[in-house]
Computed example of a mutant assay.
Amino acid sequence: MVELVEVKRELIQKIETENENLQSLRSIYQQNLNDMKSRLMSLPKHYEKQREDIRKTRARSFLKWKEEIDYIALQLQRQLHDMESQDITGLKKQEEFFKEKLASIEILLRENKDLKASNKIDKLVRFKPNSDIFTDLPALQEYTRPKFHAKTFEDFKLKEHFGEISGRVLLEHPAYRIQNVKEIKIYKKILLKHPSVLFKINMKSIWIEDSFESLTSIVHFGYNRVWVGGKSKCLVLVDFNGNLIDDIDIASLGNYLALSSKGNLLFSNTKENTVDEILCDRTLSSIIFASPWEPKGMTCTSAGELFVCLYKKDDSKVAKYTDHGELISEFQYDKENHLLFNIPDCIAVNVLQ
């Protein structure tokens, strides 16, 4: 009887471990699904902007070579349409894959819950973990966004000077395997005496709007991609090879960026004195209203708490918020009532603490 109780305990423990693995996998699959949805929603807007650029260039050049311009513009529009169809088809296919996998994980979680609650030893003995079939994610593919490049009008070689659609590059992000919980270890990090350069990204070749004076902020977005901001009202998403993946216009300069615990991009809107969140459908939501303080650098903890540097004339502090923008605490003065900070601009959290 004692042995039977022990076997039952071990089997229930195995189910609990299996559920923990499935919960972790569900979060990763959900993040990928949200990414697919966000990119699907942003694609039509990007292609419509390229179409608008073509229409504007066509209007400027309409008085000369009308028939040839119409023909070239039509061919370019068809080229964009074909590219858009390919992009949407590919992303929908990957979106459907993650939907199916998430549905399978939900079914297994419900079955495991029912099995655990049944306490029937004959069924518990026959239990077999299934989370291993989800740990190998396929390589994800995506094209870089094509852009229409208008050319200076000339009296000759009209087709060469009207514009062209830049070629796309099919990016394939390598598949990866989720580590087993038992394999995850925290290693002591050591500062290098001489840092080494791993990647160089030429931002001048892909900056998409007006010129910029400097780059001031960068956050890792996963799959070898980073959001980059600077003294420009445009944020760009690029991969480590310098390929433009996405872009979004904002109301203020993109000097201060962070990534929320939900995987959404945050930036300090110094024009409105707010911290804004870019949701997966590309809409903006202000989560922190800091006025009269000006928000600057910020960082997010794994628990979802947000630390923000705040500044106004002759005063400064660091504030801690929840992921919903509710104030938790402030750090402003030391024990002798002296300001802790002069002009706080950057902040980071030690993840090992």
Rank of each mutant, 00 (worst) to 15 (best):
C300I: 07
T322Y: 01
A290R: 08
S217Y: 05
L340P: 11
N337C: 00
G304D: 10
S285Q: 15
K312E: 04
L310V: 01
K335W: 01
N224I: 00
K317I: 01
L198A: 14
Q332A: 02
D210V: 00
F289V: 11
T274P: 04
I278G: 02
K204F: 07
S252T: 12
D210C: 08
E330H: 05
S232W: 00
W227N: 05
S214A: 10
I250H: 05
M298T: 09
G230R: 05
I288Y: 04
C309R: 05
T301M: 04
N269Q: 14
K233T: 03
G230H: 08
G325W: 14
K312D: 01
P292V: 08
N202L: 02
L339W: 06
L266E: 15
H324Q: 11
S252Y: 01
I278A: 03
Y311K: 10
F307I: 09
A290H: 14
N243T: 08
E294Q: 14
Y333N: 03
W293R: 14
K231F: 13
N202E: 07
Y321P: 04
F212C: 00
G222R: 14
V226R: 01
K313T: 07
G304E: 13
I208A: 12
N269D: 15
N243S: 10
S286V: 05
C234K: 15
K296M: 08
K296N: 10
L310H: 02
I328G: 10
K312C: 02
Y223Q: 12
T283F: 07
H220T: 10
W227A: 03
S286M: 04
N269P: 15
I278V: 08
G222E: 07
I250K: 07
L253E: 15
R225H: 05
C234E: 11
L253C: 06
I206R: 02
G263Q: 10
I218A: 13
H338T: 09
T274R: 07
E277C: 12
I208Y: 03
I201Q: 04
G263K: 08
T322C: 07
A258H: 01
L327W: 09
V219D: 05
I245Q: 11
S217R: 07
E277D: 07
F331C: 06
L198V: 13
V308M: 01
C280N: 09
L198M: 11
S316E: 01
I248R: 15
F307E: 03
N264D: 15
T301A: 13
Y256W: 06
E209G: 10
L327Q: 13
L339E: 01
F267W: 14
K320C: 07
E277Q: 14
L259I: 14
D247P: 02
D239Y: 03
G254L: 05
P295S: 08
V228I: 13
S329M: 05
E326G: 12
D276S: 14
S302N: 05
K320W: 03
L259M: 13
P295M: 06
D276I: 08
N269C: 04
W207G: 06
I278D: 05
K233N: 13
L237H: 01
N264A: 11
I288F: 03
S205D: 13
N224P: 06
D281S: 14
